[in-house]
Design a protein around this nucleic acid. Sequence first.
DNA 1: CTGTAGTTTCAGTAAATACTGAAATTACAG
DNA 2: CTGTAATTTCAGTATTTACTGAAACTACAG
Lengths: 173, 173
Amino acid sequence: MTTEPEKLQEARDLFIEQWGAMGSLWGVTRTMAQTHAALLAAEEPVSTDDLMHELGISRGNANQTLRQLVEWGLVRSVRVRGDRKEYFVAEKKVWKIFCIIARERKRREIDPALAVLRECAARTNGLRNRNAKGFHKLVSQLADFLSTANNILERAAAREESTVIPALLKLFG
Amino acid sequence: MTTEPEKLQEARDLFIEQWGAMGSLWGVTRTMAQTHAALLAAEEPVSTDDLMHELGISRGNANQTLRQLVEWGLVRSVRVRGDRKEYFVAEKKVWKIFCIIARERKRREIDPALAVLRECAARTNGLRNRNAKGFHKLVSQLADFLSTANNILERAAAREESTVIPALLKLFG
DNA sequence: CTGTAGTTTCAGTAAATACTGAAATTACAG
DNA sequence: CTGTAATTTCAGTATTTACTGAAACTACAG
């Protein structure tokens, strides 16, 4: 016989493990994604010590990871009166989580890549020989596509979920 | 004075380096992304030896990386008659490249994640206490969102670029 | 102020990941 | 078939990346 709390604990562990594995999807370490998962799965604010014990990681690691999550905006820190400790709470609205992750990936990876692609296109603009022409065309197309995709994502992320998902489902459903 | 071929070479190197850095965006090694870039930037089919020299990597690495790119469908191998060597050519249509990468990420990472989220939701279905209810709601919402996003992407990737991008621009422009 | 709980930092270390290179295998030309 | 060029494989190694833990620092209570 499995009790309810045991079932919950198992499901929670499974979730933390899987969410951790998804770290590579948005370019963060396994530990950071697991930390995010642990906070998502918590009903109460969580302290650095709670986290260290739950995930079996060092204080330094827990502290750095939490700071990073706060910086991203996925987590905010809360204070309990009469307690010196800092506690942490995760943003739980799925659409917000998605927007934050998309924004960070864009800022950290897509924008710099786009700048370089444009630079490559500019440097080979007007060159005469066949190879140069082919290369120029390719990087220009890549830059245009990335730029367009980027814009679409940015505009979508600025809206409310209710005005985005239904429209997309209508378009592609 | 910089000659045209020199300018091209510089731009090409810049491109290879940057495309390599983007490997993490779709979950492949830097070398695999660089290899892809080198093939994209080539007007002629490229051999394993060409690649080893261009990127300064070992034969084993070049071979494995090329095989993987072929498996993904981003590269195909071509044979030159009267030559025993195998040569490689990259798919250059940007929309196709995008679709292939999206498909692989979906298959390798999103689908398994979705299965686990659903399992977590199922295991906590009907549990009574507050924590379990909150957790069940969260993972259900995450699973639904991921599933919807997945479907939209899949349907979009099955279409022609000309029927997707303009529609999205109209929707979000 | 002073003592203490809490937090941050970062040099050193551990773990994960990617790469090498040479031996084994395959595939082709003669 | 036979010899040779090309490719594949993978155990060992290098490199990169993430983590630890203890010392330094900070901020609060008394």
